[in-house]
């Protein structure tokens, strides 16, 4: 009987917790990337990034569709989806992490970044400004080989091994 009581209490706690938790959400975040290349720079922008931040638990989650990346040239976009990111097999990229410290709007975030079906633990320092909305911005780099993204030897667009990623999201409180 005591066990049952405890379960009840725990459930109540969970319910209370989820009700009181301050959660912020966005579905229009921006993630762009840039790669220096000798012939032609490669850049793309995704303006439909989803993100949720739980202020209580410090959980921070991002999710995006690879096909939402828009390139200045549609042929690049085709190659990106077909040959590099294989978006038919791996349609989504996600980040599941936690804000581990927050001082003077400078946040350190740690978590699992999944691209091209490969998950790596990463650490990113960015800015997290919380007023009535939460603004998150960060710059970081990823190595293509960490995510099994192959670059063929003979291609017109020589692609750098390292890609710069820029994150810009404004999250609103869920009411």
């Amino acid at each position: 009987m005591k066990v049952l009581k405890i379960i009840k209490i725990v459930f109540l706690l969970i319910i209370c917790h989820s009700v009181s938790a301050q959660k912020y959400i966005s579905k229009e975040g921006t993630i762009s990337f840039f790669s220096d290349a000798p012939l032609e720079d490669i850049s793309a922008i995704n303006k439909s990034v989803s993100a949720v931040y739980d202020f209580e638990s410090n959980d921070l989650v991002f999710s995006l569709f690879i096909t939402d990346f828009v390139f200045p040239k549609s042929l690049m976009q085709e190659h990106f989806n077909e040959n590099y990111l294989e978006s038919d097999l791996y349609p989504k990229s996600t980040f599941i992490g936690k804000v581990i410290s927050l001082n003077n709007d400078v946040a350190s975030v740690k978590g699992d970044l999944t691209i091209h079906g490969v998950t790596n633990r990463i650490n990113v320092i960015g800015s997290l400004i919380k007023k009535d909305k939460v603004r998150i911005s960060a710059d970081f780099k990823v190595q293509l080989e960490d995510y099994n993204i192959e670059i063929p030897k003979i291609v017109m667009y020589k692609i750098a091994e390292e890609i710069e990623i820029k994150v810009e999201v404004e999250l609103k409180e869920i009411k």
Binding site: I25, K27, S50, V52, V61, N81, T94, I96
Partner: peptide, 24 residues
């Protein structure tokens, strides 16, 4: 509960229902 919380956050995004167009 802890393991679930982050997954719940992902579910909150509710983007699994978007149509997936087949291209190329």
């Amino acid at each position: 509960f802890i393991a679930k919380s982050q997954e719940n956050l992902l579910n909150l995004l509710g983007d699994d229902n978007e149509p997936m167009y087949i291209s190329y």
